[in-house]
Design a protein around this nucleic acid. Structure first.
Length: 499
RNA sequence: GGCGCAUUGGUGUAGUCGGCUAACACGCUGCCCUCUCAAGGCAGAGAUCACGGGUUCGAGUCCCGUAUGCGCUACCA
């Protein structure tokens, strides 16, 4: 039997990293087993679902490189009629019943508290889950009242005795007593719309899903879903639940509290290389059998296994206070690692996109200046963290309009007043060099520093800030060659004004 | 409240059948390289494996209990 898995996000917000990881694991599993990877949009909550959210999710999956769905995208809302029919079929088969109890309004704010209170109260009164008086209403009577237009909800008839059990691929054997599961509502009263547990099951059956891979927050509810599979007479798929990704204080990651760090598109917008973030994501809750953490997509597919997923929740370690740690340090490190080691040919288009977005791209980079571009990028990528750095710290390589870092100016230019005269002098001796390259500019600078009686380091560091605006960067003589004779001389003279 | 799941250095993880002087990566500290560095090289600090008890010659690994965290418990998804 070929494997069929699906990623089933609900479009009620952006694609957060936990969901993205679920998508990734589904995708990896499908690609490894030669199975099908499907996308189903769970848009049954019309109030909360938005097109914008859907677009953001789709874009996120594309960015991660896992949007090659093997079949048409399924929209759950389009299947509502099927879900309803399935529930009514269960009523006919006496596996579910109509509940004519008037719908109780629920305040959305304190649901968790309300549930706990109700449970506590129920426990005190010894209430049991099978006490609904409509549970044993005859089908004739039920049909009659429904036919007369009386509003009803449909609930599943859960057996009084026994227990539900299944083997989770990640969490192992799971068991739950029926007495702990109430007769869950399948269809809402009033508009008779289907509820989540019914919809997932009917759709998963319809889509022929063989493995349900999703967040651990669904682990306990799986028992309810299995009950629905059974009632419907359908085979139950295999389940694999994934540990959750938590915030540094071990709280659930949420948009409201944690903002954009949890949104996948943030990583795209802040200069992450998709492969790097994907690689990082794969390591949250899973580890390859060997110690190799940096993996190509092919290696990841080959090494992945659901059995290798572990059970404890992972913490996404970031700091809201420190800008340098705006997201997990390992994610940042991995991005830098990818930027400095990936094939230049793969990096180039990403840098181009960044330069274009910032108005720094020039047509000649595609033609005459192509070798220069490649050399430059290869040189400066060594100490960059994100693609944004190419247009930020690296701006001076692509434009004459760049800013001088205050700290760099203070450290390398302002602290030695003689630089006011030395810099123009250096500019002159640099200009006289022929040919102009790293070696000759070094010779010129060292000769000049000797004749001026200052240490070469003084001029080298001053030059770095003069030519790039930065305090750090590649070897200075490489920079001279890259920036070129004329621009170098001009910037050295201009920097004299900053001393 | 009930039920379920988890718990290895700051973080991500390894540790299959009990033999660990607890491994790797990020981060951190120091040194080296050097013209700088958020790069590279080297070294180091950091974990009584949540706690308590038990089984055993021997437990991070097995059993029981406790604590903490998380999840579910809804006519939300």
């Amino acid at each position: 039997m070929t494997v069929r898995v699906r990623f089933a996000p609900s479009p009620t917000g952006y694609l957060h990293i936990g969901a993205a990881r679920s998508a990734l694991f589904n995708w990896l599993f499908a690609r490894q087993t030669g199975g099908k990877f499907l996308l189903r949009v769970e848009d049954t909550d019309a109030q909360r679902s938005t097109d914008e959210s859907l677009r953001s999710i789709i874009a996120g999956l594309e960015w991660l490189g896992i949007s090659d769905y093997d079949e048409e995208v399924v929209f759950q809302s389009a299947n509502a009629e099927k879900h309803r029919a399935a529930a009514l079929r269960l009523v006919e088969a006496d596996k579910a019943y109509r509940d004519f109890t008037p719908k109780a309004e629920r305040a959305d704010t304190n649901v968790k508290q309300e549930i706990a209170d109700r449970a506590r109260k129920g426990a005190n009164e010894g209430a049991d889950h099978r006490s609904n008086s409509f549970r044993d209403l005859s089908l004739e009577e039920s049909n009659r009242r429904a036919g007369a237009g009386e509003p009803f909800a449909v609930r599943l008839k859960v057996a009084r005795e026994g227990k539900s059990s299944f083997e989770d691929i990640v969490y192992g054997p799971q068991e739950r007593d029926y007495s702990e599961i109430e007769d869950l509502v399948l269809l809402r009263s009033g508009d008779v719309s289907p509820l989540y547990n019914l919809s997932v099951v009917v759709d998963d059956i319809e889509m022929g899903i063989t493995h349900v891979i999703r967040g651990q927050d669904h682990l306990t509810n799986t028992h309810k879903q299995i009950l629905i599979y059974d009632a419907l007479g359908a085979g139950v798929p295999r389940f694999a639940h994934l540990p959750l990704i938590l915030a540094p204080n071990k709280a659930k990651l949420s948009k409201r509290k944690h903002g954009e760090v949890v949104s996948l598109t943030t990583y795209r917008d802040r200069g992450f290389v998709p492969a790097a973030f994907r690689n990082y994501l794969a390591l949250l809750g899973w580890a390859p059998p060997d110690d190799q953490e940096i993996m190509s997509l092919e290696e990841m597919i080959r090494k992945f296994s659901l059995e290798g997923v572990h059970r404890s929740n992972a913490i996404f370690n970031f700091s809201e206070l420190d800008a340098r740690q705006w997201t997990d340090q390992k994610a940042l490190w991995m991005n830098a690692e990818y930027i400095r080691t990936m094939p230049l040919a793969e990096l180039l288009p990403m840098v181009r996109a960044e330069l274009e977005a910032e108005g720094l791209w020039k047509a000649e980079y595609e033609t005459d200046a192509r070798p220069w571009l490649e050399k430059t990028i290869d040189l400066i990528r060594q100490r960059f963290m994100t693609l944004k750095d190419f247009s930020g710290q690296g701006r001076a390589y692509f434009s004459d309009e760049f800013e001088y870092d205050d700290a760099a100016v203070a450290k390398n230019l302002k602290k030695e007043t003689r630089l006011k005269e030395l810099l123009p002098g250096l500019a002159a001796s640099i200009e006289a060099v022929e040919p102009f390259n790293a070696e000759t500019s070094e010779g010129a600078l060292r000769a000049f520093s000797e004749s001026a009686g200052v240490k070469a380091g003084l001029l080298i560091n001053a030059s770095r800030t003069a030519l790039t605006g930065q305090a750090v960067g590649p070897s200075m003589f490489e920079i001279f060659e890259i920036i070129g004779r004329e621009r170098s001389a001009r910037r050295l003279r201009a920097a004299a004004q900053l001393v």
